[in-house]
Design a protein around this nucleic acid. Structure first.
Length: 261
DNA sequence: TTGAGGTTTTGCGATTCTGC
DNA sequence: GCAGAATCGCAAAACCTCAA
């Protein structure tokens, strides 16, 4: 269901919001979606969906499969995402440092940004020995239970964090006490050490550490994480070794970014 | 081939948005 | 704040699928 932040926001174009919401309805694994499924996922009336899919198809964002009678994402979507990725200098700057840390830790090192209640991978490097985590660019992970998401929450203002947590609480009433405890612990860890942990909180066999990068130019917060198998990345390793190395990575990337401004 | 049931599209009045 | 343009959503028609 679309959650419009301000229904009376005169700067917003509702039709555009809805069209983009249709595109966002496609998740990994959703190769084809019909108008009815799109209407269910977006909460929009079926006639509106029909018009939106027609328009998006004409513009090349969707394509229609005669065989399945459904739509799939088309090349214009990739072109849009590719432009976004290519224009992010931080990926180019961070890539070699991420590779070095991943090989040292024999784990996965990722760079992510917030996407609503998820964290979206915009760069990822896996060591050859990584077996547990096989997420790539474009993957999304939850904001409240992963180290990456928690690091982002720690870097936001109190008001921004509360706004997100209100939505997380609404969607996870039953698990909220456990989720809240993890976030409180992360806030404490971040204040003391500058990084956050997730020790099996998202997936029980995954341990991870993450640290935010707050750009000097005031642009969106970036988060670096290092994750791997729980039996490989023990708590003491993350706290005493990998975490500090990740912080060093963040500092180095930030310095290079600042020099290039 | 027909009819039932489900889905998509179309027409049109109402509402919202945009540009001035 | 207003007028014209664009969009929305309801209702109904058209279309499609499938079983009998």
């Amino acid at each position: 269901m679309i959650e419009t932040e301000k229904d009376n926001d005169r700067q917003s174009v509702r039709a555009l919001e809805r069209g983009l919401e249709v595109l966002r309805s496609f998740k990994p694994g959703d190769r084809f979606l019909g108008n009815q499924e799109l209407a269910q996922r977006t909460g929009l009336p079926k006639p509106t969906i029909s018009r939106l899919t027609h328009t998006l198809t004409r513009l090349g964002y969707l394509a229609y499969s005669e065989k399945f009678g459904k739509y799939h994402l088309d090349s214009a979507v990739l072109a849009l995402g590719y432009s976004f990725l290519v224009n992010m200098d931080v990926r180019r700057i961070a890539r070699p440092l991420m590779r070095d840390l991943a090989e040292y830790a024999q784990a996965s090192v990722a760079l992510g940004v917030q996407d609503r209640l998820s964290m979206l991978y915009i760069e990822a490097y896996r060591s050859s020995a990584t077996v547990t985590l096989t997420l790539d660019v474009g993957s999304q992970i939850p904001i409240a239970t992963t180290s990456m998401g928690r690091a982002l929450l720690c870097a936001l203002s109190d008001a921004e964090r509360e706004a997100i947590l209100d939505q997380v609480k609404t969607r996870n009433e039953g698990e909220w006490p456990r989720i809240k405890a993890g976030i409180d612990q992360s806030l404490q860890d971040y204040a003391e050490r500058g990084f956050c942990l997730s020790l099996g909180d998202w997936k029980k066999d995954v341990h991870a550490v993450a640290a935010p990068l707050i750009p000097s130019d005031g642009s969106r917060v970036l988060v670096f994480s290092c994750a791997g198998a729980a039996f490989q990345l023990r708590r003491h390793m993350l706290e005493d070794d990998i975490g500090p190395r990740l912080l060093n990575l963040v500092t180095n990337v930030k310095e290079i970014m600042d020099r290039q401004v």
